[in-house]
Structures are given as structure tokens and as C-alpha cells.
């Protein structure tokens, strides 16, 4: 009934140091794929991760559209497999240390500075930091964060057994996580800003099949209310303007994502949402700096796309380093 997940940790297993062929910032699917390809190719690889490796994919209860797993696979298990594969070929992984800045020194030398004060040197650097859940920016959201407002159903879901829950956002993420919450919550009310959902049909069917589900389309969440903890949300019917108070114990927010690119914005081009522009070879405008996965502009946030990006970057890095050495 218990499983035990072992991840590396920074202090005891210090990285070997020296000049890396590639330093990968972010240990999600895109970063780990780059690591697998590059280390298998004999390159010296370092992966820096601010939390545990696995990225958002690891917080997904069940992944059903990753090829090769006909019965689906837990996100955590799949990402553990990615990691093991990278380690098998010699990738070094440091967790729980966040990158603070990236400093290009000269062609073939980029320094990476972390919050804990470590400095690593690489010939190339891959940004695969992904994205973090977006906030609604409404009254009560920050106040009740950790007191009923959550952005991670996998983390905080257990607190809402037999309780009423509101999920804001009925896209793929909202419905996917909502399905998980439906397993133990007393009721789940999905509130969607649009008059319809863009989620996959299979998810819609499953959510609608539960008697505990209520779906509210074309509603805007205006405020989160509570005392010590959340007691309700105020939703506004966008057509009639009618305000409704929906009593709830918890609010899970899945209204999209914003990129984690702030620490390199001076080195790359970003689109208006802050996603990093990289070309077909995953190169950014700074020589030796690559961007892959969910942080990359115009990418659909899909595991298979991240895996593809990571592959392309690793192959291009091989060429780049060959050229450096010649």
C-alpha cells in the first residue's frame, strides 16, 4: 500500500563540478530527455532542479496519451523512469536548488548561479523550466492560499475528503485533476469562464458521469471568501450578471500556466506572455543557450512535444560542441 520514491538530494551527493558539456535547468520531461540523449552520447551533463525532478508531469495522477503505455501510467512513475534512464548514462542531478541567473561569458562558457550560491559552468545551457499554474488575481486568493485555495490537487487533495470542492477552470487540467478529487470529495463544482470547455471529450464524459459533479459554464469567479479557511466563492454569470455564492471548503485553480523564464529574460526573446522564443533547433538568441518544453513559445504543453524538443536540442548541442572542439 506504500510506495517509496527516492530522489537525489544536493548536499551529500555533490556534483562532480568542472566544465559541463550541457547544464539543463529544469528536470521535467523536456530536460530529462535532453539529459538522456546528451549523456548517452557521452556528454558531461548536469540537471539542476528547484524541486524534485519530474516537473508538472509528475503531479499528474494518470497519463493516458503517452505512447507505449496502453493502460496509462502514473505521472510520477513515468518521470521516475525518465530520471533513471538519464542517470544510467551518467547524468548528474541536483535537486532543491533554484537557478538565480545565467551568465554567458564567452563562446563555449556559460555560468549558472543558484540561489544557494553554487556556480556551475557549461559549454551550453538548456532552459527547460516549464511553467507554473496561473493565479486568478482575485480577492481572497492569496489570503486563503494553503487554507483552502490550492494549485495542486495531488498535493492537497487528501485534505478534502468528504468535503465540497470548487475547481476553477474546466480545461484539460481542471477536468483531469477534478476527476481525481471526485474520487473522495463530497461534491465538485467546476466553474469555467468560457461558455464551453476545450477539454478532451473523454475527460468531459468521465466528469459528467459522476453524480457529484456540477458544471457552471460562462461564469467568472470574482472572489474567494472565508473565515479561518475557505467557505465559499462568488461566481458571476457572465450573461445575466447574476452573482452567486457557492459554498465550498476548497478551491482548486486550473486556469492555465505562466512560464518560468524571468531569470533569463535579458538573454532571450520572449513572446508577450513571457514564453521563450527558440528556433527549430531550440536555439535562443544567446549562443549556446537553448529553450525546450513548456517554457518555449508556441508549444502545446504536451509531454510528447517536450520529449521531441529535448531530443532536438541534444542533437544540436552535439553539433555545437563538435564545432567548438574543432
Amino acid at each position: 500500500m506504500f510506495d517509496f520514491t527516492l530522489t537525489e538530494e544536493s548536499s551529500a551527493t555533490a556534483p562532480s563540478g568542472g566544465l559541463y558539456d550541457v547544464i539543463i535547468i529544469g528536470g521535467g520531461p523536456a530536460g530529462m530527455t535532453t539529459a538522456i540523449y546528451a549523456s548517452r552520447d557521452g556528454m558531461k551533463v548536469l540537471v539542476l532542479e528547484r524541486e524534485s525532478t519530474g516537473g508538472l508531469a509528475a503531479t499528474t495522477e494518470r497519463i493516458e496519451n503517452y505512447p507505449g503505455f496502453p493502460d496509462g501510467v502514473s505521472g510520477m512513475e513515468l518521470m521516475e523512469r525518465f530520471r533513471k534512464q538519464a542517470e544510467r548514462f551518467g547524468s548528474e542531478i541536483v535537486e532543491f536548488d533554484e537557478v538565480a541567473s545565467v551568465e554567458p561569458v564567452e563562446k563555449g562558457l556559460i555560468k549558472v548561479h543558484t540561489a544557494e550560491g553554487h556556480v556551475y559552468e557549461g559549454k551550453t545551457v538548456v532552459v527547460s523550466t516549464g511553467s507554473r499554474p496561473k493565479k486568478l488575481g482575485i480577492p481572497g486568493e492569496d489570503e486563503f492560499y494553503g487554507r483552502g485555495v490550492s494549485y495542486c490537487a495531488t498535493c492537497d487533495g487528501p485534505f478534502f475528503k468528504n468535503k465540497n470542492v470548487v475547481i476553477v477552470g474546466a480545461g484539460n487540467s481542471g477536468l483531469q485533476e477534478g476527476l481525481q478529487v471526485l474520487e473522495y470529495a463530497k461534491s465538485v463544482t467546476f466553474i469555467e469562464f468560457l461558455p464551453y470547455t476545450r477539454a478532451e471529450q473523454i475527460l468531459q464524459d468521465r466528469v459528467k458521469a459522476s453524480p457529484k459533479t456540477t458544471l457552471l459554464f460562462n461564469h467568472r469567479v470574482a472572489a474567494i471568501q472565508g473565515q479561518q479557511t475557505v467557505t465559499g466563492v462568488v461566481a458571476v454569470d457572465r450573461e445575466s450578471g447574476e452573482e452567486k455564492l457557492i459554498p465550498t471548503d476548497g478551491v482548486f485553480i486550473y486556469v492555465g500556466y505562466s512560464p518560468i523564464s524571468q531569470f533569463v529574460t535579458d538573454l532571450v526573446e520572449t513572446n508577450r506572455w513571457g514564453y521563450i522564443v527558440s528556433d527549430a533547433r531550440m536555439r535562443t538568441k544567446t549562443l549556446g543557450l537553448y529553450a525546450v518544453g513548456d517554457v518555449r513559445a508556441d508549444n502545446p504543453a504536451q509531454l510528447t512535444v517536450s520529449v521531441g524538443n529535448g531530443t532536438i536540442a541534444a542533437l544540436d548541442i552535439r553539433d555545437f560542441i563538435r564545432e567548438l572542439n574543432s
Partner: peptide, 27 residues
């Protein structure tokens, strides 16, 4: 409680801290 799932890493990190007696913190 029981350090299962991701928390198994916490247990091991605790053991390492207890053995090395050195924190991984900035000055």
C-alpha cells in the same frame, strides 16, 4: 508519521544531515 512517497527522500536527507552534521545553506 510514515515517510512514504516523496517523503522517503526527506527521511534520507535527514539521515545524511544527522551523519554529516553539515547544513546545505548559504553563509
Amino acid at each position: 508519521g510514515i515517510p512514504s512517497g516523496h517523503e522517503f527522500s526527506t527521511l534520507l536527507a535527514g539521515i545524511e544531515r544527522a551523519s554529516y552534521g553539515k547544513p546545505d545553506l548559504d553563509e
